[in-house]
Design a protein around this nucleic acid. Structure first.
Lengths: 194, 194
DNA sequence: TCAAACTTGTCAGTGACTGACGCGACGAAG
DNA sequence: CTTCGTCGCGTCAGTCACTGACAAGTTTGA
């Protein structure tokens, strides 16, 4: 990620991983998670089941692929925010890339619906949320080297809690209100967005 | 739970479920989660593997047993709080039973440590946290019938986020500071506890 | 051009989980 | 006291997630 490998092998590997990710998500959404066997996912891209596990540690690891992409974008966004901006606003801006993707990718809503309805996927999702939180803890720490640990922890956790509230509300209302509004409203309940 | 069945069969069933729960947690802590097969758990109480799955839907479903117990206590506590008390304080008091248990049960710390180190258990744990959150949303709704949905959602989610921060900090510091202090400190970061 | 490094398929095996079947215990009705 | 129905349990067979080992083919770099 820091040193993008451009060798043929590395590019091919990324391409195959991307293909598997898209195929898996497509099958998850149309057929359900439990009904989608790893063998079917692999067959959808013309590979063997064994090969799938050479790209993903587990069946639900597919979600990590997407989450990591946006998380890296978010981390970069935070680093580029003005230093005198409030933490709360900086964090809010980190969610913009994800918000944008919900407008572009039409699988965002059905995928989230599936995640919230499938215990296994929900567990993996919260694992990813935790990694987002740890990412925020890291960048907040560099901005406030002297702040107490718990204060940083709570700020990052609250932000992710608001994000989750917005996402769940978005799914619960079938995406009627734009998710950006929901995030703003949720975060404003905790601290003002200024 | 609401209508405790006192028939011989029902009591026996609860006893067996409790035995399996304790045996499983004990094995999880001493040998690790992945290393503990369902067969071993069942053997520890002299039953067959098949029978385990007549009491629990999945291997990690064992955690639900504990979580549900404290969640029901918490719901009852909230209902008995004075109506003019602030939501934030009422919620804080709901955590007291769990806090008390961390002092009594010596498996609380190693179990939490294991949960945070085991992806599968963490996923199930967050599923339980979600049910706590939904429980709080329910009781907050009865206290504020007119409040906007998102406000209630955020309040419940923030409370659980603070609880999780406290728990993780407690584990990270090997239980040095009492968890009650950590919960107070975390919740005070968001809203004053008055 | 050749050897090391990497990728993939096949196969066998473990463990979580499910459905079907049969047996024995126990409470209720006669 | 017997008989009938229900329920809890064990056994067995089967699916699926996941892993290790081996063999064959491909890419890379000297």
């Amino acid at each position: 990620m820091s040193q993008p490998d451009t060798s043929l092998r590395a590019r091919k590997r990324r391409a195959v991983k991307g293909d598997l990710t898209l195929a898996a998500i497509d099958l998850f959404i149309t057929n359900g998670y439990d009904e989608t066997t790893v063998e079917k996912i692999a067959a959808a891209v013309g590979m063997s089941e064994r090969t799938f596990f050479r790209y993903f540690a587990t069946k639900d690891d597919v979600l990590e692929q997407l989450s990591a992409y946006w998380r890296d974008l978010a981390a970069r966004t935070f680093a580029e925010r003005p230093a005198d901006e409030s933490d709360w606003v900086s964090i809010r801006r980190c969610f913009d890339d994800f918000v944008e993707s919900t407008r572009r990718d039409d699988f965002a809503l059905p995928l989230l619906r599936l995640i919230y309805a499938t215990p296994q996927l929900y567990g993996r999702h919260m694992h990813n949320v935790r990694r987002w939180r740890q990412m925020f803890e890291g960048v907040l720490r560099t901005r406030h080297p002297q702040a107490p640990d718990l204060a940083i922890r709570v700020k990052a956790a609250s932000a992710m809690a608001c994000m989750e509230c917005a996402r769940e509300a978005w799914v619960a209302t079938d995406g009627e209100r734009p998710i950006a509004d929901l995030i703003d409203a949720a975060m404003s309940e905790v601290w003002p967005l200024v």
